[in-house]
Amino acid sequence: MYDLILFLVLLLLGYVFGQRAEKRHFKSIIEREQTLRDILVFSERRIPDEDQLEGILVSGNVVISVDFFKRFVAGLRNLVGGRVSSYESLLERARREAILRMKDAARRKGATAVWNLRLETASIYKGAQNAVGAVEVVAYGTAVRQRR
């Protein structure tokens, strides 16, 4: 009985705080994306006007953990199969955050664009019975700035 109560409390806490954190994070991502809009990002390797530019590797990464509610729902979803929507928003957040941090690094280097962007995802911490605890996303690319 106590286990059940604890479980429900965890579920509720996970839901309330997880949803709040996610909303807040998305809001801040959208705001910062606006301020960093002048840094252009491309996944192509061919950089125009290469001879006047210099390239520096920039990267940004983020580790985001899954709340209890999402983990439970994903566990259930795993039984019946289908789209695990609770993890989709998680990964979307992580990916945009990683790109933002990379853009931020590019700006600090005085660059105006990032070329050949690559993204990697890894689940770095596995909890009990392989339940995912957190995902890491790293974004990296070549930032270019005018040759001094």
Binding site: L76, V80, S85
Partner: peptide
């Protein structure tokens, strides 16, 4: 890139169904 289903609806459906 994000599904719009409400998490609680998803949860209720899953718990009930399973």
């Amino acid at each position: 890139n994000v599904s719009t289903t409400h998490p609680l609806k998803d949860f209720a459906l899953l718990v009930g169904g399973i």
